[in-house]
């Protein structure tokens, strides 16, 4: 597991039923591309987050397949439809097999 991985998401506290809300996510991760070399000329092995998904109450919002060309501390901004009160689940899948999850509730009001 890469050290210091910290997911941060921005979700509005409440929305009207059926409203489209903008979600912003950022996760601190080095996203080592596997192209860089260290001081001795050895290739630094690739270590990235290769997939990101966002679900709302079990239904998928977005599923992103990520490649090494995504910047350090991957940032995503997208829009989701909120049909009812519930919870957003954000999941990041690391190359090393670990997953990072963050959940945020949203109210209707």
């Amino acid at each position: 597991m890469a050290s210091g991985v910290k997911p941060r998401v921005k979700v509005p506290k409440s929305a009207a039923a059926g409203e489209v809300v903008t979600l912003k996510t950022l996760i601190s991760h080095p996203m080592e591309s596997g192209q860089r070399k260290d001081k001795d000329g050895n290739v630094i092995p690739r270590s990235i987050i290769n997939r990101f998904t966002c679900d709302f109450n079990g239904q998928n919002v977005i599923d992103v397949k990520m490649e090494p060309a995504i910047s350090t501390n991957p940032y995503f901004e997208f829009e989701a439809l909120v049909p009812e009160a519930g919870e957003f689940t954000f999941t990041w899948y690391d190359d090393d097999g670990s997953t990072y999850t963050e959940t945020k509730p949203i109210e209707i009001g």
């Binding site: 992103v64 997208f78 829009e79 989701a80």
Partner: peptide, 17 residues
């Protein structure tokens, strides 16, 4: 990257770096 939009995607828009 490949962005796949699910049934609850509010729009077919995404930003990243």
């Amino acid at each position: 990257a490949t962005f796949a939009f699910g049934p609850l995607a509010g729009s077919r828009m995404a930003s990243t770096r």
